[in-house]
């Protein structure tokens, strides 16, 4: 699956530790063509998905979605979530939060004096946060990566 993407995509187990600590992706070695390098001072950088998907490299984690309660928000079972902990969660954000000893993905509602986590399905379920059950946001979902090849 996703062979075209080599080791940069979610299903390749070859991706290693440096992926997350690296702030920039290197360019490819350029000296292998028979034409020689047309000016080694000028280097271009191939488009790198990390630049687009990761704003805060140290604070960004990837997680796998399981379940169908967020399909209306565009999150399908088995999608990969890009989760940024540096962003402060606000009303309307898709968040990863701690709920009853597990991590869940929900829509954050902060309106009319109510703080709640809401699912996104045909019949949305809302869990209101209060003193007994305080809101504990783990991170904010910034992107959803989904496999489209069937």
């Amino acid at each position: 699956m996703n062979d075209e993407f080599g080791d940069t995509f979610p299903d390749g187990a070859r991706v290693r530790a440096d992926r997350h600590s690296a702030t920039q992706r290197p360019r490819e070695p350029s000296a292998s063509s028979g034409f020689g390098s047309p000016g080694s001072d000028f280097t271009v950088k191939r488009i790198d998905l990390n630049d687009a998907l990761i704003r805060h490299p140290q604070a960004t984690f990837v997680m796998r979605a399981t379940g169908d309660a967020m399909v209306e928000a565009g999150v399908w079972d088995n999608d990969v979530l890009v989760v940024d902990r540096a962003i402060t969660a606000a009303h309307g954000h898709l968040v990863v939060a701690r709920l009853d000893d597990e991590l869940v993905c929900r829509r954050l509602v902060m309106a009319d004096g109510i703080v709640a986590l809401e699912s996104a399905e045909a019949m949305p379920v809302r869990v209101v946060c209060n003193e007994e059950r305080p809101l504990e946001v783990w991170g904010v979902v910034t992107y959803v990566i989904k496999p489209m090849l069937v």
């Binding site: 979605a65 309660a69 869940v104 993905c105």
Partner: peptide, 14 residues
Amino acid sequence: RYTTRWDEIPRVRC
């Protein structure tokens, strides 16, 4: 190994 292996990333209930 939540942050270094694609097949071991944390699971989030949706």
